[in-house]
Design a protein around this nucleic acid. Sequence first.
DNA 1: TTCCTTGCAAAACTTTTGCATTAAA
DNA 2: TTTAATGCAAAAGTTTTGCAAGGAA
Lengths: 137, 137
Amino acid sequence: MSHPDLTGRLVAHGIQPTAQRLRIAAALLSAPQHLSAEQLLAQLESDGARVSKATVYNTLNLFASRGLIRPLSVDGVRAWFDSNVEPHYHFHDVESGALTDVAVPEVQFSRLPPPPEGMEVAGIDLVIRLRKASPRT
Amino acid sequence: MSHPDLTGRLVAHGIQPTAQRLRIAAALLSAPQHLSAEQLLAQLESDGARVSKATVYNTLNLFASRGLIRPLSVDGVRAWFDSNVEPHYHFHDVESGALTDVAVPEVQFSRLPPPPEGMEVAGIDLVIRLRKASPRT
DNA sequence: TTCCTTGCAAAACTTTTGCATTAAA
DNA sequence: TTTAATGCAAAAGTTTTGCAAGGAA
């Protein structure tokens, strides 16, 4: 277990630790994972927590804006949130939708373009799309 | 101009070249660009073409499934389509939403993880998120 | 005729918002 | 008591779908 003090983590990010937010934080941050709002809501309900849909969405956005979780764009359809905010990349199995982390040292860039004038790099989103290997004859 | 024969391109991808599809192809493929369904619809209407919303969505999905355009995930909110299907990457100005192409040679990987057992790499989506440079004192 | 495509409206899905109620400071 | 958070339902935005009508083969 690595969530000894969820309350402290919320407070450290300037987030008032209410009951619902702690439930959501517990569900999200109990282990590194990728969840959509709907999945999170389902998990909360199956855990017996009563948290409204609006609160789930609002809390996800709040957590993301405070850097507690990280929004992901992997399909154009819905938003995903990654409980791992450390820099890392992803494998994406397009067929199943499964997301897997790729650690930073697994990828090395020997060349990156300079950002346009007046801009700086805020982050790099790297998604390696996977498909079933075509069986070789 | 590099769209000498849109009809031929559609047919070559197994797509029946109807009037609406040619209008959409002309709008999309006239130049390398990134468009959402709504933007494409607006452009078609301003061009005087009457194409229904359903047809725009269906056609974008059809074109994408046949490899004529490429779906992009840059925000979790709506789908984007890139008329450039050649391998390349993107700058994404988070504030304005602007997307800019990054040519393949601008990025070099000196290390990439092997795909999981039984999987192969279908493609690499690389988005370099940009923000306004913080002015140095 | 037969099959495929289109348009319209309705439905489905995801996310946000208004507002009264409740909880926290 | 004052402020902030929650829940509910409604609204807003995006995409898909059912079906009748139109067009192509």
